[in-house]
Design a binder for these strands. Structure first.
Length: 406
RNA sequence: GGAGAGAUGCCCGAGUGGCUAAAGGGGGCAGACUGUAAAUCUGUUGGCUAGCGCCUACGGUGGUUCAAAUCCACCUCUCUCCA
């Protein structure tokens, strides 16, 4: 392998935007060695197999992976299937069900199709940590655990807080950082990437590599992206995310709903704007926030679906919410419902069309004026509809369904 | 192993026999206002029901009682201190 960029140039590219880099000198030394020998660095990124939906938050670190990849290094996308199979004892109520082999395989495929939007799959190595974790026996595990102390584990913020607040910490949780660190040993990783919240785990990897006689990996942490609510980090379980598999319309719409304050950060972490462009955007964000937000939504939609789709998504948005629009989305999903001879009451229809989770919820929506039929507010919860009728049903601001009774 | 504290709805948290589908807050949802932003105000937030009402619910099981989230017994789990 021949590198086109010099170690210094590579260092420059690869360290922009990182929060923590441990250690800069080590990284440069690794880059130099790799440049001289023609041997690419092994760059590791771990992924949780139980949540195979990749959202914009994940892309921050994936983009960093792509930079390494573009420079000619070997990126390893590591799926923590073993961890997933063990399950998570922390959430007592919702014990994470151990994933079956089929599920792991299916999730891996899902991952591939998604990370392919950012990484070059041809050049991406995909690994499963069960390959080396499953064969370990108790002696191996004792050796692994003897490398670490409880006091050092309690250095992790999360553990320290829970310990202080008398919230349970399972022994197994102490093993997770060790397992993750052992992954680095097994892969002989040169660099491991992760969000800043992963700092502790990444550091454990360094320590373990040293214990096992390997040169320690360089760790690089990247900023955590806030979710659509602008408060918590973007995550599927909080529902404040934009999945990269979503339609351009969904991506556009969701991005338009973020708080103004985080627009700058989104531009910074999710687009490839240059520094001067970023400054320009941040300046305009105060004077014309709407236009800037549209630009953001457009740009990101285009990144994943192309310019044409982004243009269309923007037009659809205007049609729906703009001053001159008619308040209807471009595409409305259709529900064919079979009605009994006596007809269907509105409440039932809302539930059957998937616009309300229960009858009570549907009733509430109607009572509060959140339900429209063909754009007309519909206050009568008992209104009956007969076979052959069809109309556009709207629940709340965003729930639309074309209902056809048959 | 010993002593003590605790487990309540999506989350936090009040509630020590009936007026408790359970205060209050957070979050969610809807409405008004708007830029599908923020802030603010209003309503709402277990299920079934047009409604009366019925069912399910306060870690689990059983018991006392006309009546239990509340009292008793056992069990499970968590935390603290001692060893």
């Amino acid at each position: 392998m021949k590198f086109t960029a010099t170690p210094q140039e590579q260092l420059q590219i690869v360290t922009t935007g990182v929060v923590d880099l441990i250690d800069r000198a080590e990284l440069l030394a690794k880059l130099e060695k790799s440049f001289a020998s023609g041997k690419p660095l092994v760059v590791k990124l771990g992924a949780d197999p139980s949540a195979p939906d990749i959202h914009l938050g994940h892309t921050v670190v994936l983009q960093k992976m792509r930079q390494f990849q573009a420079l000619g290094h070997e990126v390893v996308f590591l799926i923590g299937d073993f961890t997933g199979r063990v399950g998570d004892p922390t959430g007592r109520k919702k014990t994470r069900p151990a994933l079956t082999e089929e599920e792991v395989f299916a999730n891996a495929e899902t991952y591939k199709s998604q990370i392919g939007k950012i990484l070059d799959l041809q050049k991406t190595r995909i690994e499963f940590n069960s390959r080396w974790l499953a064969p370990l026996n108790f002696v191996d595990i004792l050796k692994l655990t003897s490398q670490y102390t409880v006091a050092r584990m309690l250095e992790r913020d999360d553990f320290a807080n829970r310990y202080k607040n008398q919230i349970p910490i399972s022994i197994v949780e102490f093993l997770y950082p060790l397992m993750q660190g052992y992954d680095s040993v097994a892969l002989k990783a040169d660099v491991e990437l992760g969000g800043v919240d992963q700092t502790f785990n990444l550091l454990v990897g360094r320590d373990l590599q040293r214990s096992y006689g390997q040169p320690p990996q360089v760790i690089m942490t990247l900023p955590i992206l806030e979710g659509l609510d602008g408060k918590d980090k973007m995550s599927k379980s909080l529902g404040n995310y934009v999945g990269i598999n979503e339609t351009p319309e969904q991506i556009f719409g969701k991005l338009m709903s973020i708080p103004d304050e985080i627009m700058g950060k989104y531009f910074e972490l999710l687009t490839d704007l240059s520094i001067p462009e970023l400054q320009e955007v941040k300046r305009r964000a105060c004077s014309e926030p709407k236009a800037v937000k549209v630009q953001l939504a457009h740009r990101i939609a285009a990144q994943y679906h192309g310019e044409a789709a982004a243009v269309q998504a923007e037009a659809g948005f205007e049609k729906m919410f703009g001053k001159s629009g008619d308040g209807l989305p471009e595409q409305i999903e259709e529900s064919k419902l079979s009605a009994p001879p006596e007809g269907l009451p509105l409440i039932r229809i809302l539930v059957m069309a998937g616009l309300a989770p229960s009858g009570g919820e549907a009733r509430r929506l109607i009572q509060q004026g959140g339900v429209r039929i063909d754009q007309q507010k519909q206050p009568d919860q008992n209104r009956m509809f007969q076979r052959g009728e069809s109309f556009v049903l709207q629940a709340g601001k965003r729930g639309f369904r074309k209902v056809v009774l048959e």
